[in-house]
Amino acid sequence: MSTLQKTIADKFLAKLAEDEDFDSKKIKQITDLLAADKKPKADDFAKVFASDAGDIE
């Protein structure tokens, strides 16, 4: 990951951590997603945001 991408990713995760709604588990899932793929897919993000939120149809 380039310096710029990494900086943005790190600051993004830090900003989410300040949000009480985002617990450490969810932040870890997003961190893993960004680390695993330079171009994460919308579906993967949607799954992370919907996980632990309850049933979504």
């Binding site: 710029l4 900086t7 943005i8 600051k11 993004f12 900003k15 989410l16 949000d19 709604d21 985002f22 969810k26 997003i30 993000f45 949607a46 945001f49 919907a50 939120a53 309850g54 049933d55 979504i56 149809e57």
Partner: peptide, 28 residues
């Protein structure tokens, strides 16, 4: 209602994450 609340929570996560990323990206 349960499903609606979960969907609302997930939508809130999605919007908060998108807004946070845009803020950081613009600043950087």
């Amino acid at each position: 209602m349960r499903k609606g609340n979960a969907a609302q929570k997930a939508a809130r996560f999605g919007k908060a994450a998108y807004d946070a990323y845009c803020d950081v990206m613009e600043t950087e």
